[in-house]
Computed example of a mutant assay.
Amino acid sequence: MDIQTALKIFRISESDTIKELNLSYRRLVLKYHPDRNLHRLEWSHKAMTRLNAAYETAVQHLGFASKKKNEGRHATAHDKIRPDVYTDIRQAFDLVLSGIFEYYQYGLENIHIRTGGSPRFHYVAAIRKTQRGTDRLTSIVRSNITPAERSNVKPLHDFALAFHSNMKISRTASPNSSAYDAKAYSHYRTASEYLDLTIQSFLFPEISNPKKRHSMPECLSVSNYEFLTVITAFPESSWVTDSVIKFHLLECFVKVTSAPIARM
């Protein structure tokens, strides 16, 4: 699908951001999702297939445009941040990344292995590192920094907070769940797996599984769709709260991928 067709579907322009794209995508999911169109399932599935194809095209195009725009700022981003503040931000975010790295290195996104032994030790260590780094970023955000410095640190801080909340999710599926909740969990699990794949592949390609790698727009599209399915199609499900937490992480991750200081 070409970009002009995709943008027309979402009624946005090339000057809009991924935030506007996601808002439009959510609105259209509510309109076309099969669970809301039980009387015309074939039409609904075709509409969602077209919508997801449009989303992949649009998110890739807008993400590239955002990246190019930020590259123009990249050379001067360091100049806009005082050296001591830059060092503080970099060290704080590196501590967050070290916690996230340990989390993925030992497969701790798999909740079932966290309960004891070495995995439990690494899980606690990963959370503590991420918490310490997040606390440092919080202190920087609350300190007397310039607007330019604040705009650089905010996406890192938001992502750190969101990932820390994600790490603390500990619910697992119950064999006694209702069919309604089990179906919601199926969407939640798929969304979570694609989100983890995306974050891990972007931040730590050296430990990601090459056989499971997909394009970032594809992973974001699937994850976005599946989380929204839980939230909108299964509003009474026990998985809505965790889906909202992870969906917020997804949004924060998209912003941090184009943050100049995150790539320095």
Rank of each mutant, 00 (worst) to 15 (best):
Y106S: 08
T146S: 12
I111N: 02
Y103G: 02
E109Y: 06
L95D: 06
I140V: 08
L62T: 01
R132E: 11
K67G: 06
R128Q: 09
G63S: 04
D79Q: 10
H157W: 08
I127N: 00
K68W: 13
I145G: 07
L108Q: 00
S151E: 11
E109V: 15
S143Y: 03
L97G: 09
R114N: 01
I81Y: 06
Y123I: 03
N70K: 10
F93L: 03
G116P: 08
V124K: 12
T138Y: 08
D94G: 14
S98L: 15
G133A: 03
D135T: 09
Y104L: 15
R132A: 12
H157A: 08
S139Q: 14
R90Y: 11
T146I: 06
A125D: 08
R120S: 11
H157I: 01
D94F: 14
D79A: 13
L95W: 07
T87Q: 09
T115I: 13
Y103K: 07
G107P: 00
L97D: 07
G72S: 07
S151W: 07
S98G: 10
A65F: 12
E102W: 14
K67F: 13
A92T: 00
D135K: 13
E109I: 13
V153G: 01
L108N: 02
E102I: 08
H157P: 04
D135N: 13
V85F: 00
I145M: 08
A65Y: 12
S143L: 06
I140K: 00
G116Y: 00
Q105Y: 10
R150N: 04
I81H: 04
S139F: 09
S143K: 07
K80D: 09
R142S: 08
K68A: 09
F121Y: 14
N110H: 10
Y123V: 03
G117Y: 02
H112P: 07
I113M: 10
A65P: 07
T134D: 13
L108V: 02
T87A: 12
H122W: 15
F93E: 02
V141A: 12
G99H: 00
A148G: 05
V124G: 05
A92K: 00
P83N: 03
S143M: 07
D135F: 13
Q131D: 10
T87G: 05
F121S: 06
Y123N: 04
R132F: 15
G63A: 03
E149Y: 03
L62D: 00
A126S: 14
T130I: 01
T134H: 12
P83G: 01
R90E: 10
N70W: 06
F101G: 06
D79N: 11
N144C: 09
G133K: 01
S151K: 12
D158E: 12
A126C: 08
R120L: 14
P119W: 00
K69G: 10
K67V: 02
E71D: 11
Y103L: 12
E71T: 06
L137D: 05
I111R: 11
F64H: 06
D158R: 04
R132S: 11
I140L: 10
H157G: 00
L137S: 05
V141I: 15
G72C: 07
L137V: 08
P155F: 00
I127W: 03
K68G: 04
T130C: 05
K154F: 09
Y103H: 13
E109P: 10
